[in-house]
Deep mutational scan, measured.
Amino acid sequence: TTTITTTNEEDARRIATEWKNKGYTVHVEKRGTTFRIEVR
């Protein structure tokens, strides 16, 4: 599992989409101002 964190919502969406397009399972969680993107 790879975890990526960013405070930028646009980055979070872009990163999540990129990983999904590669065939990975992506889970995005917002904690306060931080977005945690888990890639499996």
Rank of each mutant, 00 (worst) to 15 (best):
residue 1 T to H: 12
residue 1 T to Q: 09
residue 1 T to L: 13
residue 1 T to Y: 14
residue 1 T to G: 10
residue 1 T to S: 11
residue 1 T to V: 15
residue 1 T to A: 11
residue 1 T to D: 07
residue 1 T to M: 13
residue 1 T to K: 09
residue 2 T to S: 08
residue 2 T to C: 15
residue 2 T to D: 05
residue 2 T to V: 14
residue 2 T to W: 15
residue 2 T to N: 08
residue 2 T to K: 12
residue 3 T to M: 11
residue 3 T to G: 04
residue 3 T to F: 14
residue 3 T to Q: 06
residue 3 T to W: 15
residue 3 T to V: 15
residue 3 T to I: 15
residue 4 I to F: 15
residue 4 I to Q: 04
residue 4 I to R: 03
residue 4 I to L: 09
residue 4 I to V: 06
residue 4 I to D: 01
residue 4 I to T: 03
residue 4 I to W: 12
residue 4 I to C: 07
residue 4 I to Y: 15
residue 4 I to H: 06
residue 5 T to N: 07
residue 5 T to P: 02
residue 5 T to Y: 15
residue 5 T to F: 15
residue 5 T to G: 03
residue 5 T to A: 05
residue 5 T to Q: 08
residue 5 T to K: 06
residue 5 T to H: 10
residue 5 T to S: 07
residue 6 T to Y: 04
residue 6 T to G: 03
residue 6 T to E: 04
residue 6 T to K: 03
residue 6 T to P: 02
residue 6 T to Q: 03
residue 6 T to F: 05
residue 6 T to W: 03
residue 6 T to D: 02
residue 6 T to N: 02
residue 7 T to D: 15
residue 7 T to K: 09
residue 7 T to E: 13
residue 7 T to S: 11
residue 8 N to K: 06
residue 8 N to H: 06
residue 8 N to E: 06
residue 8 N to A: 05
residue 8 N to S: 13
residue 8 N to Q: 05
residue 8 N to F: 06
residue 8 N to Y: 05
residue 8 N to L: 05
residue 8 N to V: 07
residue 9 E to H: 07
residue 9 E to A: 11
residue 9 E to F: 11
residue 9 E to K: 08
residue 9 E to M: 08
residue 9 E to D: 05
residue 9 E to W: 14
residue 9 E to Y: 13
residue 9 E to N: 04
residue 9 E to L: 10
residue 10 E to S: 09
residue 10 E to C: 08
residue 10 E to F: 09
residue 10 E to A: 12
residue 10 E to K: 09
residue 10 E to Q: 10
residue 10 E to M: 10
residue 10 E to N: 09
residue 10 E to T: 09
residue 10 E to G: 07
residue 11 D to E: 14
residue 11 D to W: 10
residue 11 D to V: 10
residue 11 D to G: 04
residue 11 D to S: 07
residue 11 D to R: 06
residue 12 A to N: 01
residue 12 A to W: 04
residue 12 A to Q: 02
residue 12 A to K: 01
residue 12 A to L: 03
residue 12 A to R: 01
residue 12 A to E: 00
residue 12 A to V: 05
residue 12 A to G: 02
residue 12 A to F: 03
residue 12 A to H: 02
residue 12 A to S: 05
residue 12 A to C: 07
residue 13 R to M: 14
residue 13 R to A: 10
residue 13 R to G: 06
residue 13 R to N: 12
residue 13 R to E: 10
residue 13 R to H: 12
residue 13 R to Y: 14
residue 13 R to Q: 11
residue 13 R to D: 08
residue 14 R to M: 08
residue 14 R to Q: 07
residue 14 R to P: 00
residue 14 R to A: 08
residue 14 R to N: 06
residue 14 R to K: 08
residue 14 R to V: 06
residue 14 R to H: 06
residue 14 R to F: 05
residue 14 R to G: 04
residue 15 I to C: 04
residue 15 I to W: 06
residue 15 I to L: 07
residue 15 I to P: 00
residue 15 I to D: 01
residue 15 I to T: 04
residue 15 I to R: 02
residue 15 I to S: 02
residue 16 A to W: 06
residue 16 A to S: 07
residue 16 A to P: 00
residue 16 A to F: 07
residue 16 A to V: 11
residue 16 A to R: 03
residue 16 A to L: 05
residue 16 A to G: 03
residue 16 A to Q: 05
residue 16 A to T: 05
residue 17 T to I: 12
residue 17 T to M: 14
residue 17 T to H: 09
residue 17 T to R: 12
residue 17 T to K: 10
residue 17 T to V: 09
residue 17 T to P: 00
residue 18 E to S: 08
residue 18 E to T: 07
residue 18 E to D: 08
residue 18 E to K: 08
residue 18 E to F: 15
residue 18 E to W: 15
residue 18 E to N: 07
residue 18 E to R: 08
residue 18 E to L: 13
residue 18 E to M: 13
residue 18 E to I: 11
residue 18 E to V: 09
residue 19 W to V: 02
residue 19 W to M: 06
residue 19 W to H: 03
residue 19 W to Q: 02
residue 19 W to Y: 11
residue 19 W to E: 01
residue 19 W to L: 08
residue 19 W to S: 01
residue 19 W to T: 01
residue 20 K to G: 07
residue 20 K to Y: 09
residue 20 K to Q: 12
residue 20 K to A: 13
residue 20 K to V: 11
residue 20 K to M: 14
residue 20 K to F: 10
residue 20 K to T: 12
residue 20 K to P: 00
residue 21 N to E: 11
residue 21 N to G: 07
residue 21 N to Y: 06
residue 21 N to D: 10
residue 21 N to W: 06
residue 21 N to M: 13
residue 21 N to F: 07
residue 21 N to Q: 11
residue 21 N to L: 13
residue 21 N to R: 11
residue 21 N to I: 09
residue 22 K to H: 05
residue 22 K to S: 05
residue 22 K to V: 04
residue 22 K to A: 09
residue 22 K to D: 03
residue 22 K to T: 03
residue 22 K to R: 13
residue 22 K to Q: 07
residue 23 G to H: 03
residue 23 G to T: 01
residue 23 G to S: 02
residue 23 G to K: 02
residue 23 G to M: 02
residue 23 G to I: 01
residue 23 G to C: 04
residue 24 Y to N: 02
residue 24 Y to F: 11
residue 24 Y to D: 01
residue 24 Y to R: 03
residue 24 Y to K: 03
residue 24 Y to I: 02
residue 24 Y to W: 06
residue 25 T to F: 12
residue 25 T to N: 10
residue 25 T to I: 14
residue 25 T to G: 05
residue 25 T to R: 10
residue 25 T to M: 11
residue 25 T to H: 13
residue 26 V to R: 00
residue 26 V to S: 01
residue 26 V to I: 05
residue 26 V to F: 02
residue 26 V to E: 00
residue 26 V to L: 02
residue 26 V to D: 00
residue 26 V to K: 00
residue 26 V to H: 00
residue 26 V to G: 00
residue 27 H to C: 12
residue 27 H to N: 10
residue 27 H to S: 12
residue 27 H to Q: 08
residue 27 H to L: 12
residue 27 H to F: 13
residue 27 H to K: 12
residue 27 H to R: 12
residue 27 H to E: 07
residue 27 H to M: 11
residue 28 V to C: 09
residue 28 V to K: 01
residue 28 V to H: 01
residue 28 V to T: 05
residue 28 V to F: 06
residue 28 V to M: 08
residue 29 E to F: 13
residue 29 E to N: 06
residue 29 E to R: 10
residue 29 E to D: 07
residue 29 E to P: 00
residue 29 E to I: 13
residue 29 E to H: 10
residue 30 K to T: 06
residue 30 K to V: 10
residue 30 K to D: 05
residue 30 K to Q: 12
residue 30 K to L: 11
residue 30 K to A: 06
residue 30 K to F: 09
residue 30 K to H: 07
residue 30 K to E: 05
residue 30 K to G: 04
residue 30 K to M: 09
residue 30 K to I: 10
residue 30 K to R: 11
residue 30 K to N: 06
residue 31 R to S: 12
residue 31 R to N: 13
residue 31 R to Q: 13
residue 31 R to C: 10
residue 31 R to D: 14
residue 31 R to W: 13
residue 31 R to I: 15
residue 31 R to E: 13
residue 31 R to F: 14
residue 32 G to S: 04
residue 32 G to D: 06
residue 32 G to A: 05
residue 32 G to K: 04
residue 32 G to Y: 04
residue 32 G to W: 03
residue 32 G to F: 04
residue 32 G to I: 03
residue 32 G to H: 04
residue 32 G to P: 02
residue 32 G to L: 04
residue 32 G to Q: 04
residue 32 G to R: 03
residue 32 G to E: 05
residue 32 G to C: 05
residue 32 G to V: 03
residue 33 T to P: 12
residue 33 T to A: 12
residue 33 T to M: 12
residue 33 T to F: 11
residue 33 T to E: 15
residue 33 T to L: 13
residue 33 T to Q: 13
residue 33 T to C: 10
residue 34 T to V: 14
residue 34 T to A: 08
residue 34 T to P: 01
residue 34 T to G: 08
residue 34 T to M: 14
residue 34 T to S: 10
residue 34 T to W: 13
residue 34 T to I: 14
residue 34 T to E: 14
residue 34 T to Y: 13
residue 35 F to E: 01
residue 35 F to R: 01
residue 35 F to W: 15
residue 35 F to T: 03
residue 35 F to V: 04
residue 35 F to K: 01
residue 35 F to D: 00
residue 35 F to Q: 01
residue 36 R to I: 15
residue 36 R to H: 15
residue 36 R to P: 01
residue 36 R to G: 03
residue 36 R to W: 15
residue 36 R to T: 14
residue 36 R to N: 10
residue 36 R to F: 15
residue 36 R to K: 10
residue 36 R to A: 11
residue 37 I to S: 00
residue 37 I to M: 02
residue 37 I to K: 00
residue 37 I to R: 00
residue 37 I to G: 00
residue 37 I to A: 00
residue 37 I to T: 01
residue 37 I to L: 05
residue 37 I to W: 00
residue 37 I to V: 09
residue 38 E to R: 10
residue 38 E to P: 00
residue 38 E to G: 04
residue 38 E to Y: 15
residue 38 E to I: 15
residue 38 E to F: 15
residue 38 E to H: 14
residue 38 E to D: 07
residue 38 E to A: 07
residue 38 E to T: 15
residue 38 E to W: 13
residue 39 V to Q: 02
residue 39 V to A: 05
residue 39 V to G: 02
residue 39 V to T: 03
residue 39 V to D: 00
residue 39 V to C: 06
residue 39 V to W: 04
residue 39 V to H: 01
residue 39 V to R: 04
residue 39 V to I: 15
residue 40 R to K: 12
residue 40 R to Y: 14
residue 40 R to Q: 11
residue 40 R to F: 14
residue 40 R to I: 14
residue 40 R to W: 14
residue 40 R to P: 04
residue 40 R to A: 09
residue 40 R to E: 08
residue 40 R to V: 12
residue 40 R to N: 08
residue 40 R to H: 12
residue 40 R to T: 14
